[in-house]
Amino acid sequence: MALAAIYSLFIINKSGGLIYYKDYGSAGRMDTNDSLRLASLWHSMHAISQQLSPIPGCTGIDLLQAHNFDLHCFQSLTGTKIFVVCETGAQNMETLLKVIYELYTDFVLKNPFYEIEMPIRCELFDLNLTQVIQKDRVALLGR
């Protein structure tokens, strides 16, 4: 854990339910209820931000910058949202989110035993996700 570029990853279904959560070493305790609540809170704030837009055609928050972290969010056309909490100023997070979405379509949606909108329990998805995040960490270390 020399360079923790990513602190946590959330995947939310189109109705705001948390279907996947993984922690990569953030401080403090976060139980299951907290992560579920955070996910649905993000879902509603994403929707409110669209209503407050001064210009038509808003699709919701892409990037939230806080003093201790950045949050990058990707929304697919079907309404599934993927967001990562990462270090401030971390680069290439849009690409990483697209790669994670690709893994989701390949290993979750194409899994015949997966019920749509339900929590993700797919071994292959877990395996490939770990690899991608490791690779990203290595790539960040090389720069």
Partner: peptide, 29 residues
Amino acid sequence: DPITAEKGNLGVPLLPGQGCSFYSFKTNT
């Protein structure tokens, strides 16, 4: 906030300056 270990419960009102705050967010518009 992934840095601070001691975080309160979600939904409890925060005092100004308490806890990690944000300074901007961005949408496509």
